[in-house]
Structures are given as C-alpha cells and as structure tokens.
Design a binder for these strands. Structure first.
Lengths: 356, 356
DNA sequence: CTGAAAGCGCTTACAG
DNA sequence: CTGAAAGCGCTTACAG
C-alpha cells in the first residue's frame, strides 16, 4: 500500500500554505499599512472607510486568507449567531424532519446549529445551562415528556423557542412556541373512518408529553372528541410507544377482537407495526380492518398496503420555531412569520369502507 | 385565556434571580475574598490550592450560580470541546443513524456537537472554513459524492475525521477515516441469492461517492465480484438514487422481465420501492422474485414481506469516527479504539429459493 | 499556595 | 475618515 503525493487544500493555487496559526486582524492591518481597527471596520462593512483604504484592506484579507475568529468575535461583541437544539431524539421521523427544518432555517440565516440529545439520566438544569452557555439561543423540541419538562426549566433570561405538541390547555405557553393542530387532524381522521361506515375507531397512542390528566394528548383528544360527537363511546387507547415494535404489540391485541374494524395510530411507525400484526393474524387491510397513521413518513406511501395517514409539516414547524428564536436574538431583523402547512389527511390503501 | 403565575427557573429555590448578566470569575473572587486567578484554579481543579480557600471559592460559585463562560474559555485556552459534522443529509437512515452515533459519543465525551448540511450550491471551501472557524474539529460524512468532495478540501491543519464508503482503492485516505466492509457484505448477500438457486442477481444502485471509473462503489463491486466468481455475467445496474421513489422506478423496469428473479438493492428505501413496483406488476415476493436490501432500517423488519437486508452498524461507525477525531484534539486522551460491528446478512421473508 | 501581568482576537466607544 | 484605549471573561506563565 502506498500513498501518492497530493495537494491538500483547494485554496489559492501556488500560494504557500499560511504558517502555523491563522492570520489575525493585526496581520492584515500590517499588510495593508493601517491600524487593526480599520480592518475591523472593513470586515464588518462599516460605512466610514475611504474607498482606497477599503480596497487595500480587502486585498490584504485575500492575500493572507484572513477569516475572522468566531470565538473572539462572540466574546467581544456578545453576539453569537448560533442555536442549540435540545431534543430527546434525532432519528424518529417527526424529530428528524423537525431537525431538518431547523437546520435549514438556521443555515440560511447564517446561524450555526448545535444538537444536544437529552436522556432521562440527564441533570436537566445542568444540560440546559451548558447548552445556554454556548452563547446563542435554544430551541427545545417538546414533543415528549422529557422535552416538555426541559422547556419548563429553561431560565427566563435564556433566549428560547419551542416546538410543542399543542398549546398547553388553559394557559399560554410561557415561551414562544409553535405547534400544529393535531387535535383537529385526529378529529378529521377519525371522522373519515366513521364516514366509511365503521362503528367504532380504536386508537394506538404515542406517549403523552405531559403527565397531567387534565391535559390530554392532542391526538388522543381529537380522536375522542370525534367519537363522542358521533355518540360513540371511545374504547380504551391500546398500548403506547413510538416504534413499530410497540405498534405490533398493540396490534396483536386488537387483532384478536373481530369488533375492531378501524384503527387510528399516533404515528406511522405504530401503524406499520399494527399492519404487521393484522397480517400475522390473517386480517386483511383494508377489507377487514382500516388503519390510519400520523405524520406521513417517507416510506408510508410505498408499503403495501400504502398507508392512509395525516401529513404533518414538521419541516415548516422547524423553520417557524427558528424564526421565533431569531426574533429574540436579532431584534432588528424582520420576523418572516413563517406559517407551517396545516395537517392534511392523505388517503391511500390502508383505509376503506367497512365490510358489510 | 389567562396565565397563571409560575416560577420559571428550576434553580435554587428562594434565591432571587441573578441580575442581568451572569456572574463572572471576578464576581466569585470578590465574594470569596480571593483573586480571580485563584478562582480559575479552583474551577479548573488545579491541585495547588489550600483546602480552605478552595471551599470558600466553591461556596461562592454555588451562591452566585457561576458558570464559566465557554466562549472566553475557548479564546483564552485555545481549547474548544466541540465537533462540527459536515453532511449532506440528516434524515436518510444511514446518515441519521451515523449522526446519532456521533452525537452520543460526543456527548459522553463532553463535546458539543454542531451540524452543517452541505448542498450542491454551497461554496465548499467557504463552508468548511466557516465550520472550522468554530474552533473544534470536523467530522465529514463522505458517503456520497458531495461529502467525499468536501473531505478532500479540508485544509491540512484542521483536525478532521471522516466516514467513508470504503478505503479509497489503491491509496490510503489522507485523513483518519472509518468505514465498513460493504464490498464483502454485498458479496455475501449476492452469494446468498445464488445459493438459493437464482441464476442471476440484478442490482439497484445507490449513487456512487466518487466520480472516478476506477474506484467502483463498494456495494456494486461486491455484487459484481460475487457474480463473476460464479461465472455469471453481471447485468447493468438498474437506476440509481437514495429513496423509495427511485427504487420504484427501477423496480418497474425490472418487473417487466420474467428473467429477473433476484434483486439486490443499495439500501432499504430502494428495496421498499422495488417491492412496491413488483407488487404493482403482480410479481410475488419471494415466490417469483427475491429482494434484498442494505442497512436494516428500523421499519424493514415490519413491512410485509419483511425485508432481507444487510445490517450496518452506522451507530458504531459514528462513535468510531468521533474517537478518531478526539484522538487528534485531545492527544493525551487514551484512544478507546472502538470497533464497529461487521455488516451481517439478516434473512427475512423477502428472499427465498428460486421457483422451479 | 496565591497574586499581579500579559494576552487570546476581536469590538465598541472616544478622540482627533 | 482613521488611530489609540479599554474591555469581553477567561487562561497561562511569572513572580513571590
């Protein structure tokens, strides 16, 4: 095995690599024959600089490959264009898509994005403090219990925006937050199943983001409301979890009862597991049982039967949450007021009329 | 709607919120009646401090809720415990799982993790420089062409580790890098299909990470090698892409030919699309056609038919990559030498003996 | 064991 | 329009 010679940098060809440490503002000043304050003015686009001076400085910047030290800038100016996302997960579709939206928004605004996953073992206060110390602001993904708890503990003086499951019932969130109308979406999905002739709709739940009994999870609540409005007694939600395995367990139980002809799931992964369990039990979808998911994960349109589900604009929610944070960090920035798309029911193969 | 009063901070109850700005090292010094250098010693665990002094300082730290300013520390010490991940994607399973491993490793080592998504429109050199300016090191996910290109442009003086598709053939990578033996894994999967009696195996490719003809993508190459070893002429790989839609397109074409009885796919999303296309074409899996994927995404075991695939330890690869970077950043740290698990073939329902 | 000095690389007033 | 000063909050030698 041998190593062929190769150039390492894609920078200006022919120029020798700058020595050890990067060029500083003073190096540029010396090269341009000005004071380093003038260099500061130029690189910050300050207006009061003579055109010729500006050009000399810019030439020196080019020649030395100068890049302003971000750390020093942050310390001196107190401005940190950065966001840290506090989340409990980065892989589940809803979280990953939200994160993607956040990253995109941060990037196009010129902000650096940090990610910190929280676990139940964490000392939340310490975690939050450490993230806040980084300088910029915080975005908390509060879709689950731990995330919601973290949001509650963010000190008042820390710039922070949140993504939540729904507006805390009975009170406004004490932080700028975005959410989708999951309640309405679940209602729509449930009504759809009822309209197809199903006499009842069962629900496989995702874990609630709050421990309090008073504030039901919005998806579960929407489902319940739709049933009640149709004078149907809501059955007990079946199981809870985030992944296909949890859905499979719940599905196994539901498959045993011939009365079950329609199942709404808290997310698409659960639905996938339910589908699998129904298949194993020999119950056909949608002929015997209709299944609807939530979120519209990328694969949901390609499984067989393709999954009827509620499309959520996590991407847009992520972007909006960043906008909320930015408005706090950079007050003279026009807040773009991004409005995420409303959840929409996407009808595919897994739902159909009740067998007669 | 009304807002009920609530305490915002989870900090020490009863203590009034600290004024505007956070306590500095000097505030602590004053409170403890020592110089601020002594405070520095205490918070850095320097040994030469009298026990009693140390306790006084620690008490003051507690009382004032002092937290060392990370920016100032970074500037003064030149040490930044942070990593920035350069990637083209955060949502596709392979990327997301790698990122998860990286985040976990970084977190448990006390490093902050940044994420920067690269797009084809980016000025790569500028992007890399900006990421490097942050202070810490870089981890480049080089699974695809853009990622691999970025890796090539990282300046020599920037601490950097990479995840690559495979060791650049014919030369060692000029950066510490980790990879899995995709070539061997593809060979194994292909041999498995041949052993099941299939006379040929078709391949639906993921995009190559390199443009050069000489260095074939490892998964494609392993597939090709296995066929050649069995004296089978490899058919032209069919289509290319990352997602189920791309797989669907490729699958539509393959479904038309009755000769096609076995298909290896570059990842599970492609396989899902292929499965869907076969279903639409009325070809049964595995009775008529066997399908094998790559990666073992979370849903692959729950679709019907469940997917035979190659399990990849992206998580372990991510952890290992972080270890490689850390060894550069923190030289007196014992490198833990994490070894990711080898890829393994997971046999499920989508593959079976050739129909006779 | 502890304090006084200089400096990390930049910015923000203050002078001219 | 440009330069000299002070400071962001911390660390690293240097003295004692």
């Amino acid at each position: 095995m041998h190593v062929t010679g190769h150039t390492t940098s894609g920078g200006s060809a022919g120029l020798s690599q700058s020595p050890q440490r990067a060029a500083s503002i003073r190096d540029v000043a010396q090269a341009a024959g000005v004071s380093y304050q003038t260099v500061s003015r130029v690189i910050n686009g300050h207006p009061n600089v003579k055109q010729e001076t500006r050009e000399r400085v810019e030439a020196a910047v080019q020649a030395l490959g100068f890049r302003r030290n971000a750390t020093a800038f942050a310390l001196a100016s107190g401005v940190t264009r950065s966001v840290t996302v506090l989340t409990t997960n980065t892989v589940l579709y809803g979280y990953a898509a939200t994160l993607q939206g956040l990253e995109e928004a941060a990037r196009s605004a010129g902000y650096a994005l940090g990610v910190r996953v929280m676990t139940p073992e964490d000392d939340l206060d310490r975690t939050i403090a450490a993230a806040a110390d980084t300088g910029g602001g915080l975005v908390v993904i509060g879709y689950d219990r731990l995330g919601a708890a973290a949001l509650d503990r963010v000190p008042a003086h820390v710039p922070c925006a949140a993504l939540v499951e729904a507006p805390p019932p009975g009170r406004t969130p004490h932080r700028p937050a975005v959410w989708a109308d999951d309640r309405q979406a679940a209602r729509t999905a449930t009504e759809h199943l009822l309209a197809l002739g199903h006499e009842n709709v069962h629900y496989v739940a995702i874990p609630a983001s709050t421990g309090s009994r008073r504030s039901a999870a919005p998806r579960a609540e929407g489902w319940r409301q739709a049933l009640k409005a149709a004078d149907v007694t809501p059955p007990a939600p079946c199981g809870t979890g985030w992944d296909a395995q949890a859905g499979y367990e719940a599905g196994k139980k539901l498959a045993k009862s011939p009365d079950v002809t329609a199942i709404l799931c808290g997310n698409d992964d659960l639905a996938l597991g339910v589908l699998r369990a129904l298949h194993h039990a020999g119950r056909r979808v949608p002929e015997d049982v209709s299944v609807i998911g939530f979120d519209d994960a990328p694969h949901s349109g390609f499984i067989t039967p393709s999954l009827t589900t509620v499309r959520m604009d996590f991407h847009g929610l992520g972007r909006a949450a960043f906008g909320l944070l930015r408005a706090q960090l950079d007050t003279d920035q026009p807040a773009p007021a991004l409005v995420p798309a409303e959840p929409t029911l996407v009808c595919r193969e897994s739902s159909g009329p009740r067998a007669t």
